[in-house]
C-alpha cells in the first residue's frame, strides 16, 4: 500500500494581537491508499488547522506534507484536482442555488456540468437544488458541502466533521456513501469527534491531542495497544474493597476503587487477582474482563475524560501539563 497523504513534524503557531497559540506541535500522520481514515481529537486539538494547512489555506511554521506523493503546498495546483475537501462546515453564498454554486465551481475547476446533477443526486439534494442556499437547514448545507467535495471525483476526499448537523438518517446515509466511495477506490480522511461513527466506518485512525499525534494505526491496533484491558472485580464483602485494592497495588496492578467493585488493570493474568486476594482470605464473587472501545481509548489518550466536580476547559488535555485531566476514570 502506498501513502496518499503524509505529514511529518507539522508546526503551526497562530499569531494574533491576543498573543501566540501553538495549534500544531510536530504533528505526524500517514493515510494509506484506499482507506477510510479517521482523524480524531477533542475540540481545539488542531484537526481543522491540520486540514487547512494541508490544503494550502494557511502556511505552516515547519514540517513536511505530501499528497499523492507530491510535496505540498508547492505541488498543490497540480494535485488540487484530485483532492476534494470540506473544511469546517463550509458556508456558501446564500443567494445562489445549490445548482448555481456547484456549476460555478465546476466551471472554475474544468469539471463537466453534468457531474453537478450526479453529485446532487448522490447527496440527496436533487429536488431542492434550485432553492437558494440560505433557505437550507444546517444538514442540507452539509450535504451541499459534501457534494462540492465530490464534484471533482477526487482520489482523496477530506471531510472535516461531515456529520455536523446531520439527522440520524443522514449520518447513516453518509456512512453508506463513504463505504461506497472507499469501495470504488477513493481514499477518505474523516475528521470527527463522534467516536462511534469512526469505529463503525474507519479502517484506521490517527488521534491528535494538543497538536500532537498520540496514537495511530488500524482501529484494532489502537485498541490493542492502548486499551489496557481491565478487569471488574467484585468481592463477597464490600468492606474488603480498600484493603484489597492496596494488596493488588502491591502486586503491581493499577486499581480504581468504585463504590461496589474494583477496576483492575496492568496485570498479566487474571489469575493473579484471585491468587493475591485468596492469599489474604478475600474471595472474589465476579471477575470479568472489560474490553475498551475507541471512546475510552480516546478519552484516556487525550486526557479529556470528565472528572466529577470539575469543569474541564477546552485546552486541558493530556498534553497541556497543567491539566488535572491526567486522572481519567481509568488507571488512577
Amino acid at each position: 500500500m502506498s501513502a496518499v497523504l503524509e505529514i511529518a513534524g507539522l508546526q503551526k503557531t497562530y499569531r494574533s494581537r491576543k498573543g501566540v497559540r501553538k495549534a500544531l506541535d510536530g504533528f505526524d500522520m500517514v493515510v494509506e491508499a484506499g482507506q477510510v481514515h479517521g482523524f480524531l481529537g477533542p475540540n481545539g486539538s488542531g484537526k481543522t488547522t491540520t486540514l487547512r494547512t494541508l490544503l494550502g489555506l494557511i502556511r505552516p511554521n515547519g514540517g513536511r506534507m505530501s499528497i499523492l506523493g507530491r510535496e505540498v503546498p508547492q505541488a498543490l495546483p497540480e494535485v488540487a484536482g484530485s483532492v476534494g475537501a470540506i473544511v469546517e462546515s463550509p458556508q456558501f453564498f446564500g443567494n445562489f442555488s445549490a445548482q448555481d454554486t456547484l456549476s460555478l465551481l465546476a466551471d472554475a475547476g474544468g469539471v463537466p456540468r453534468t457531474r453537478v446533477f450526479e453529485v446532487l443526486e448522490l447527496v440527496g439534494l436533487r429536488d431542492r437544488s434550485k432553492d437558494r442556499v440560505k433557505t437550507y437547514s444546517l444538514g442540507m448545507k452539509q450535504r451541499l458541502a459534501v457534494a462540492s467535495a465530490l464534484l471533482k471525483n477526487p482520489k482523496l476526499l477530506i471531510l472535516d466533521e461531515p456529520a455536523n448537523g446531520l439527522d440520524p438518517g443522514g449520518i447513516r446515509e453518509m456512512r453508506g456513501l463513504m463505504a461506497g466511495l472507499a469501495e470504488s477506490g477513493m481514499t477518505v480522511l474523516l475528521s470527527s469527534h463522534i467516536l462511534g461513527e469512526i469505529q463503525l466506518i474507519c479502517d484506521s485512525v490517527t488521534i491528535i491531542a494538543a497538536g500532537r499525534r498520540v496514537a495511530a494505526g488500524s482501529v484494532a491496533e489502537v485498541l490493542a495497544t492502548h486499551a489496557s484491558t481491565s478487569l471488574r472485580v467484585r468481592l463477597e464483602a464490600v468492606s474488603d474493597l480498600t484493603s484489597s485494592a492496596a494488596a493488588l497495588r502491591d502486586a503491581g496492578a493499577q486499581v480504581v476503587v468504585e463504590p461496589d467493585h474494583l477496576m483492575v488493570s496492568g496485570l498479566a493474568q487474571p489469575s493473579a487477582v484471585t491468587r493475591t486476594l485468596a492469599e489474604r482470605g478475600v474471595y472474589v464473587s465476579e471477575l470479568s474482563p472489560v474490553t475498551a472501545d475507541l471512546e475510552s481509548v480516546f478519552l484516556e489518550l487525550t486526557g479529556t475524560a470528565p472528572v466529577q466536580g470539575e469543569n474541564r476547559q477546552v485546552d486541558q488535555t493530556v498534553m497541556s501539563g497543567t491539566a488535572p485531566a491526567q486522572s481519567g476514570g481509568w488507571g488512577r
Binding site: L55, G56, L57, P73, L76, P77, A80, V83, A85, V87, P90, Q91, F92, F93, G94, T101, L105, A108, G109, S148, K152
Partner: peptide, 18 residues
C-alpha cells in the same frame, strides 16, 4: 466582499490554489 464573508472564496481556493 460577499465571497470572502460567505466562505465562497475559501471554497474556490480549494479548487484553484493559485
Amino acid at each position: 466582499g460577499a465571497e470572502w464573508a460567505s466562505g465562497g472564496m475559501m471554497n474556490l481556493l480549494l479548487w484553484r490554489p493559485r
